[in-house]
Design a protein around this nucleic acid. Structure first.
Length: 505
RNA sequence: GGCGAUAUCGUCUAAGGGUUAGGACGUAGCCCUCUCAAGGCUAAAAUCCGGGUUCGAAUCCCGGUAUCGCUGCCA
């Protein structure tokens, strides 16, 4: 393939999103690959905002992209640079191309060759209009021979693509491919000026190349949708007297139906996964394995190992389907396997968000009036975590552990309070627990089983009924661990409360 | 339509001429068990089709098909 991994000295990569939307999972994956590559080679990661289309860009979206990257843990060493602030650089480069005969002034009307009505990416019309059979666009503009079609109009600058011959591109993941120059149109470098401007903003092809040269980018790692653009860019590098970087195109991420991932496939905005309560490291691990493999059988790969193992050679050439169930599996794995001190801050944030957090649970804080402190918090989270799927479950599913205001699930009552002996048993248990000399797992265990036996029922019946009584749910951690963590007072109180609740019903 | 690329279980992928084609998610069953998870075990499940090359092809070559991308004064 390529000796890209040998050229590790001075690796410089960039992630270059366009603020026309939120941070898409595809973009996030591209950002992650760039970041892993940079960190792997102790190189430099650059963030560049490609906002040269005033019509479509929304500056307020930049913050969302940055938030998404930060959540993902992808940081950068240089930037963010904004292309909208670098206009002069592009104009100078375009003029240089005109001067050295590689570009020309084009006076054609701006919409002369437009392929049709381009709707927003996620709207239905998009894929239908410009498909096959559409209007044939130009490859060679007549203006290149100095024959302006509309003299007097403001010109754009177009690249003068060589007639005949081929342009070869080398890609670290796709290998070599060759494009016939006659298939490459005379693409626009610089938009025509509006008002009293001589020229407008740069087009994509010019902007990337000028910036990648200026920022000394060594490896261009980006989505495979740019493969077809690459020959144009190679031509531009040559015209500007520069050496092309190593290109590494990464396969696209598709939806479950194997079509391009879009909103109708569900969440595509990275920030939605944060909002849903996925752990960033789990998301990162999942994303890293979409289109890349370390070669072996490992799947649970911590970030530092991701960095150590990442290489362009391991990048696949086939598009990958975004498989949400697997993402969820990664999340539960991380929820269970993370060091407890790494998980605690995430849970703290979640409880703060839902208003259940108490300051005495913070590290180093004095215990609250009920004796609960940071150690209690850690024990409780540890007890809860095997059953948690997403962070918000701590606030909803596990609410009874953090608050005395909780509801008992009607279905759970229906299932485990059916037996007419339940109220009497719960009352007896409350009494027995109240008299316990010690409050620990085994003491609770013995007391509970004794009450069940005395009442002539199987222990399981009482245990399940008690679970519903003290946490309100059919599903919770093992009962006696739950009792210990809740504390005697709460357990006894909730048991009597349950007896009353049954009586009322 | 043209050009480019890709094709291994439903999904993510390993195997870069010789393996019973491996692992993971999901699915099904069993074990564990106070619920539900987790965990353990087991099962079903793939080399797009057709030609070559070769003693031998998932792997190399050609054709077909399918899919994806590009084909904008979008990025």
């Amino acid at each position: 393939m390529n000796d890209s991994t040998n050229k590790t000295a001075g690796v410089r990569v960039r992630f270059a999103p366009s603020p026309t939307g939120y941070l898409h999972v595809g973009g996030a994956r591209t950002a992650l690959f760039n970041w892993l590559f940079a960190r792997r080679h102790r190189g430099v990661m650059i963030l560049r905002i490609e906002d040269t289309d005033a019509e479509r860009n929304k500056p307020e979206l930049v913050q969302g992209i940055i938030d998404g990257l930060k959540w993902l843990g992808v940081d950068w060493d240089e930037g963010p640079f904004y292309q909208s602030q670098r206009t002069e650089l592009y104009r100078a480069a375009a003029k240089k191309c005109v001067a050295n005969g590689n570009a020309f002034l084009c006076y054609c009307p701006a919409d002369k060759y437009a392929g049709g009505d381009y709707a927003e990416p996620d709207q239905p019309g998009r894929d239908e209009e410009p498909k096959g059979g559409g209007p044939r666009r130009l490859t060679r503009c007549t203006c290149r021979d100095g024959k302006p079609s509309t003299p007097g109009a403001k010109p754009a600058i177009r690249f003068k693509v060589p007639i005949g011959g081929t342009t070869k591109i080398t890609d670290a993941v796709f290998g070599e491919s060759e494009f016939s120059n006659d298939e490459i149109e005379d693409f626009v470098l610089l938009r025509s000026g509006k008002g009293d401007e001589e020229f407008g903003q740069s087009m994509y092809q010019l902007g990337v190349v000028v910036d990648d040269i200026d920022m000394r980018v060594t490896h261009v790692i980006r989505g495979a949708d740019h493969i077809s653009n690459t020959p144009k860019q190679v031509l531009l590098y040559l015209a500007l007297g520069a050496t092309p970087p190593v290109f590494a195109h990464v396969p696209l991420i598709l939806g479950a139906d194997k079509s391009r991932l879009s909103k109708r496939h569900g969440a595509t905005d990275v920030n939605m996964y944060r909002a849903e309560g996925f752990l960033p490291e789990a998301f990162r691990n999942f994303l890293a394995l979409l289109g890349w493999s370390p070669g072996g059988d490992e799947e649970f790969i911590r970030t530092k190992d991701l960095i150590a193992k990442f290489s362009l050679e391991g990048v696949s050439r086939t598009n990958a389907v975004f498989d949400r169930p697997k993402l969820e599996w990664f999340n539960t794995q991380y929820l269970q396997r993370l060091a407890i001190e790494d998980l605690l801050p995430e849970v703290e944030n979640e409880l703060k968000r839902s208003g259940l957090w108490k300051p005495e649970w913070a590290a180093g804080a004095a215990p609250g009036p009920d004796g609960r402190d940071h150690a209690w918090f850690a024990r409780t989270v540890d007890l809860l975590r095997p059953r948690i799927r997403l962070l918000p479950d701590f606030s909803t599913w596990a609410r009874a552990f953090f608050s005395d205001e909780f509801m008992r699930d009607p279905a759970a009552k229906e299932k485990f309070w059916k037996d007419p002996k339940v109220p009497e048993l719960l009352a007896k248990l409350a009494e027995a627990l109240g008299n316990l000399k010690e409050w620990n797992h085994d003491a609770c265990d013995h007391a509970t089983r004794a009450v069940a036996e005395a009442g002539g029922v199987k222990a399981g019946l009482l245990i399940n009924a008690t679970r519903v009584a003290i946490v309100g749910q059919a599903v919770a951690p093992p009962l006696f661990d739950t009792m210990v963590v809740l504390g005697r007072q709460r357990v006894v109180r909730r048991l009597y409360d349950a007896v009353a609740a049954v009586a009322k019903a």
